[in-house]
Amino acid sequence: MEAESAIALRGLVRGYGRRAVLKRLDLEVTPGKVVALFGANGAGKTTLLRLLATRLRPSDGTASVFGHDVVRAGHEVRKRIATLAVFGGAYATLTAREHLRLDAALRERTALDPDDLLARVGLADSADALVRTYSSGMRKRLGLARLLAAGADLWLLDEPHAALDEAGQDLLDQLVREARARGVTVLMATHERSRSRRLADAALLLVDGRLQRSDGVPERA
């Protein structure tokens, strides 16, 4: 058990076919920290997030979330995480309210009020509209509401600022700060350097499948 780390990677390797995308990554992230993950397109940021979200299996090495191995204890990992997909990860033929009810049922958090959550992310007036009528920014805002609803200890955010307008990006930053204050750990893959640097406790750079520490980052993320 590695209970002290929100995220622990040990010699983590992941490839697609013969192409290695992640090459022997080692990392520890302390609970309650916000970590920004930078890297060029195709550097492996999304692969790392999907691996931690138990959607991909490592080719070699191990990855654990709050001491739970992502392969052997995937179900325990999923109890602790929430994800935000690049495009919001919503169903086009459901409404925002139906998404939150579905999530609440699947996560056994039925006491949450969808109206409060949707008001928080600026979707109160669109709660009963089908997601297919939403703009990409509204879909992302719904993703934020679902993050809040999940009550998770680790947020895995894939390009969270993308598609959001200025107000939406401010809201996202505010939600991340509040989450950190509650002890939530955040790992966000992003190209939004200036905002993320202001927000993050640590910044990492993925280059050619290997993790490098970005400037001004403490030894232990």
Partner: peptide, 18 residues
Amino acid sequence: QADLEDGAFDQLLTTPVP
């Protein structure tokens, strides 16, 4: 088909549901 749009199935599979 609906699952594959916008990563919705990925999102579903990260909930703590067997």
